[in-house]
Design a protein around this nucleic acid. Structure first.
Lengths: 198, 198
DNA sequence: CCCTCTATTGAACGGGGTTCATAATAGCAG
DNA sequence: CTGCTATTATGAACCCCGTTCAATAGAGGG
């Protein structure tokens, strides 16, 4: 029974991630409490720290799952999209908006977790981000066939950032709530206009 | 001596705002501590709460000043810009980027402060935002003379959000640091492309 | 069954925002 | 100037929270 401890810990680890995920999804990142986690998981407070370095590690684990779901949603939208590359971009961006709106707290947690200064982003983050960028880059390469890969990378990042900004400020409460339709309109506006007369 | 107390409190209030502003600018919003504020201001811990409801109120006061400086920078850039409305947009957006980069912590604090759920954004916020939107809207109206005011408002918000997104993700540490030049390039790319063939 | 070594536990620690009983002070009447 | 009272300022104390670690429980081998 060598791996018994590891097994128990792995189970607790998964359990904690699920519980934290639910908490973040329903009440937001700032509502996550170590003591709540422990009591919901039926474990001791200290047990959390046998399995995770600190709460941020749990949040990162949750974020990895969220990011993965996001990527899957975007991929699914892309799979159902028409061949036209501009439409593909629009469909993906609206899928991004859709995911953010439907998973507001979890989506926010992706960006609200504070990294220690100077610490690099985790590997899975860069990987999922790269995947998203690839989804965008492919149609862009069709639309702009005469661009350097370097220029394409810049275009890709610029478009992703723009859509992200539109969704971020659109879903932000400070602006008194932009209607969901308007967000989609802005996304389509930016993408269509951007990709016109290529 | 009727207004003596009010005077003293007003002075403390201003003092606390200045001190908090410096702290946020140098170390970020999360480094703001009530006890530090009190000792730096040479006042009692509780004195803070005679003058502000809570720390968030101080942050909001700092943010109002930051937002005002931002608006002034953008306005200054606009004043020095050429007549061409597209160039005006580019110059303003790069001024926005410049301000964010030069005042990273203060700029972040504008968006990192968490409002109580359901609470409306403060008046000055909407006002400064409206001012920024007006700066953008004017050249846009020249570029797109045949659009509804409503459509123009959507364009304005979309462009601001896009630039904001580019700056936000560009300055974010997670992406391992996008060079400042690349951020400016992305901004120019989006704006020029967006405003072409109007 | 005991012994040892590991894993688990939750009380305690440190640090932070906020409050409130108390002390200090200002204003005023005599 | 001296009490007296109402107002203001103070900072110790409260509560919450993440994290730690001495003490306990438990597993495995002899």
């Amino acid at each position: 029974m060598a791996g018994k401890v590891a097994e128990r810990r792995a189970a607790l680890r998964d359990n904690l991630i699920i519980i934290a995920e639910k908490r973040i999804a329903s009440d937001g990142l700032s509502a996550l409490r170590a003591r709540d986690l422990a009591s919901d998981a039926g474990c001791a407070l200290g047990a959390i720290y046998n399995v995770f370095g600190d709460l941020t590690d749990i949040v990162l684990a949750v974020n990895a799952r969220t990011f993965h779901r996001l990527g899957a949603d975007v991929a699914a939208a892309l799979a159902d999209a028409p061949q036209d590359p501009v439409e593909q971009l629009v469909v993906m961006a609206q899928a991004y908006h859709c995911f953010a709106a439907a998973n507001l707290h979890s989506w926010r947690a992706l960006f609200d977790v504070e990294r220690a200064p100077g610490e690099a982003a985790p590997d899975w983050y860069l990987q999922e981000m790269g995947q998203l960028f690839a989804y965008i880059s492919d149609p862009l390469a069709v639309i702009f066939p005469n661009r350097d890969p370097q220029e394409l990378a810049l275009l890709t990042r610029a478009l992703f950032s723009s859509v992200h900004g539109i969704v971020l400020l659109g879903l932000d409460g400070a602006s008194a709530g932009v209607p969901s339709d308007d967000i989609d309109k802005m996304i389509a506006l930016i993408l269509r206009q951007f990709t016109s007369n290529s």
